[in-house]
Design a protein around this nucleic acid. Structure first.
Length: 423
DNA sequence: TCTGGGGTCCTAGGACCC
DNA sequence: TCTGGGGTCCTAGGACCC
């Protein structure tokens, strides 16, 4: 048996933890650069605020509705997520953290009333972290997802928890579920499924797997089988190593000058290096890409990328930054207003595995460089106080994103510590 | 003026091998 | 008149997730 524990409106709930006055008020959280709505409290959903809507398009219409707006605060969300996951691990060590706000638990060993256990989990997480969660329990991951969805909609007999096995009419429930409400089925596939006469989850569960395989491939075949109660997706207790690392940002304003882009690309490469060494992995190549705004219809659209392969995989930020600049020079075209750029490290290899070269004189990373990187990472361990940087990262700051509504890093920065007054 | 960021998996087709 | 069988690797594109 699987349980899916999913935080309710996670980013919005995080903002509420240290601002209890926001209880009952609509909250929206915006994507980076204060671009789109990426999280909404229940009250914000009730106002009809759509997901993924550009904020500047709806901001004016929402004036006077008491909506609390926040820029993304990933230091806060990441820390609260870790606390939630630690709490879950005390109930069930066999746990797969699937995303920042949800985990699958293996309840095979649990005895007794699973719904009661789920309720105990939800109650404890709320009390220890301040984050409300919903729990879906089922014999496959996909059914646990379905159960979680129903629990969130308040269809669970026991509050935020729903056990699929206790459902009086599972077939009828699946028949009432649209295909795109199933995990792994998007709107696009939902439309195609409907065209084939598979208009609800029950049809998917009872379809001939060979037919699903033939029409959609193995992914949808698995979904069909999982809905029928046949587990195809195992719990991944150990996360597989990353295959790529991407750091990209939309700029706070459009950038035209190469020097401004250099600063951005340097900072992205340095950040990519940090992520790389945390894994720990090495990068055999560096890709840089940039683009003008896809929304500016009066301007020509330009998007391009360049990949440079290193002689041997590295974990040296300096090397990554140097190569990234060479790649940037290849794709930069003067006279354009750039909206976004990024650094991608593809085809990552484990840090401990070193493939030698027969003929190259190029040395491996100098052991002193390795130590330098370790030292750099140690000094910069606290993200709120990044102590040491490369000078080229500081080249221009026009690229830095807009964050007009950012809350303090309450739990990861002394300066952000919440203050309580008593009268 | 303003429109996110970071991932994974699968498949088909082309190219190559013996 | 007739032209096999069994593989791997790579890439691009499409699809999905949160």
């Amino acid at each position: 048996m699987f349980a899916l524990v999913d935080c309710n409106n996670f980013y919005a709930s995080c903002e509420r933890v240290f601002r209890p006055a926001l209880e009952g008020r609509p909250i929206v959280v915006l994507s980076n650069n204060d671009g789109c709505v990426v999280a909404r409290s229940a009250e914000a959903k009730a106002l009809g605020i759509p997901m993924a809507k550009p904020w500047f398009k709806i901001e004016a219409a929402l004036r006077g509705q008491g909506v609390a707006v926040f820029s993304s605060n990933y230091a806060l969300y990441g820390d609260l997520s870790a606390r939630v996951m630690q709490t879950l691990a005390r109930f069930c060590p066999r746990l797969e953290t699937y995303s920042i706000d949800e985990s699958f638990l293996d309840l095979s060993g649990a005895r007794g009333d699973l719904a009661a256990l789920g309720l105990e989990i939800a109650r404890t997480v709320k009390q220890w972290t301040g984050i409300p969660v919903s729990v879906g329990i089922g014999p496959t991951k996909t059914l646990a997802k379905v159960a979680n969805r129903l629990a969130k909609k308040g269809r669970g007999p026991s509050g935020p928890v729903l056990d699929w096995a206790r459902l009086p009419d599972p077939r009828g429930t699946l028949a009432g579920l649209a295909p795109e409400d199933v995990w792994g089925i998007s709107a696009r596939w939902g439309t195609r499924l409907r065209q084939l006469g598979l208009g609800h989850a029950l049809a998917l569960a009872e379809a001939d797997p060979r037919r699903l395989r033939q029409a959609f491939g193995v992914v949808v075949e698995r979904i069909g089988r999982e809905l029928a109660g046949v587990p195809c997706l195992p719990l991944e207790l150990v996360p597989p190593p990353r295959k790529q690392i991407l750091v990209s940002r939309s700029f706070g304003r459009r950038l035209a000058a190469l020097d401004d882009l250099r600063g951005a690309v340097a900072a992205f490469a340095a950040r990519a290096g940090e992520k790389l060494r945390r894994q720990p992995l090495r990068a055999p190549a560096v890709t840089v890409f940039l683009q003008t705004s896809p929304f500016a219809e009066a301007e020509p659209f330009y998007a391009n990328g360049a990949t440079l392969v290193l002689d041997r995989p590295t974990r040296d930020s300096g090397k990554l930054m140097h190569v990234a600049q060479r790649a940037l020079e290849r794709i930069f075209r003067p006279g354009l207003a750039y909206q976004k750029a990024g650094v991608l490290l593809p085809d990552l290899v484990p840090a401990g595995v070193e493939q030698g070269l027969l003929f190259s004189e190029q040395p491996a990373d100098d052991p002193r460089t390795d130590r330098l990187m370790d030292c750099l990472d140690a000094l910069n361990r606290r993200p709120a106080h990044r102590a040491v940087r490369y000078a080229s990262e500081l080249f221009g700051d026009g690229w830095r994103m807009r964050q007009r509504h950012k809350s303090p890093a309450y739990t990861t920065d002394w300066a952000g510590l919440p203050v309580v007054w008593a009268h």
